[in-house]
């Protein structure tokens, strides 16, 4: 299977930070509270990544 990656829709993101709460393994926050994504999503984190995408209050995260 092709590797998956989380991408942010930057104009939609308002830095609420929920993604970091839900997936701290892959998502940290910069000094202003906007998400910093670390690399590709490993197989074992795919279910958590999907929940994080669904949980973003701005619908600003996608698994591509």
């Amino acid at each position: 299977m092709a590797s998956s990656r989380l991408r942010v829709d930057w104009p939609s993101c308002e830095g609420r930070g929920l993604c970091h709460e839900l997936l701290p393994e892959l998502i940290s926050l910069d000094r202003w509270g906007f998400p910093v994504i670390a690399g590709e999503v490993p197989e074992e984190l795919l279910p958590a990544a999907r929940r994080t995408v669904a949980g973003c209050p701005r619908l600003a995260l996608r698994l591509v």
Binding site: W10, P11, C13, E14, G15, D30, W32, F34
Partner: peptide
């Protein structure tokens, strides 16, 4: 000014 990291960074 639409994307946070650009607007602030």
């Amino acid at each position: 000014g639409r994307c946070g990291p650009c607007r602030l960074g």
